[in-house]
């Protein structure tokens, strides 16, 4: 009964309940936004397991910091912001891990980069080889872009966010986002051209 009541609550009301450490309200919020958070992390990290792991960190942070949430922005903007920051941190940590692995002499290496960039087979069983190849090319090229350009392109193209929404997520100006996306497109085009000519 309590859960049913909370399902009808709006986001701000849920956040107030979560700030008071209400688990039912938290579950309602997680159910409402887990797909959005997991997919954002997945698009930023390119790996399902990492995406779920970081998505969980996002919700842990929401639970811990709900009291500090200001209702000036939408909760989805807040979630996107945390997801982007934690995903970028995760990528940085992965890079450090790779350096440290050199010293560890361990055979237990991280997954290979191609695996990281490509979605698992079960996620898209109906795709043909060519489509997979194109997807791989775009994702690899995207991955080589500077951090903020990559994030802006992903949020705009995959998540369908407007420039204004991206500006709120990245806490920057609208013109900065326009510039990021313009430079992202120019860089993508430059990097994609030789790869496409090879196909």
């Amino acid at each position: 009964m309590e859960a049913i009541l909370k399902i009808s609550m709006n986001d701000d009301e849920l956040i107030q309940e979560i700030a008071a450490k209400d688990h039912t309200a938290f579950k309602v919020l997680v159910d409402r936004y887990q797909a959005l958070v997991v997919n954002t992390c997945y698009n930023l990290l390119g790996n399902r397991q990492d995406a779920e792991d970081v998505a969980q960190e996002v919700f842990v942070k929401v639970y811990q910091e709900a009291r500090g949430f200001r209702a000036e922005s939408k909760i989805s903007t807040w979630l996107y912001r945390i997801a982007v920051n934690l995903s970028l941190n995760h990528r940085r940590k992965q890079k450090w891990d790779r350096y440290l692995d050199i010293f560890a002499f361990s055979k237990d290496r991280r997954e290979n980069p191609a695996e990281v960039l490509e979605a698992p087979e079960e996620d898209r069983p109906d795709r043909q080889l060519e489509k997979k190849e194109r997807s791989r090319i775009l994702r690899e090229t995207l991955d080589s872009l500077p951090g903020r350009q990559r994030v802006a392109m992903i949020l705009h193209k995959f998540e369908g966010l407007s420039y204004q929404e991206i500006a709120e997520v990245l806490q920057t100006s609208l013109s900065a986002v326009e510039s990021l996306i313009h430079r992202g497109k120019v860089n993508l085009q430059k990097k994609l051209l030789p790869l496409i000519e090879e196909i």
Partner: peptide, 25 residues
Amino acid sequence: QFAQVWQVWEQPVRIEPSPAFWTKL
């Protein structure tokens, strides 16, 4: 060729969170 690669944006891969997501969380 470029248009085919660029189309990938329009068909983003969406994944379903695992059923154990809430339990783990």
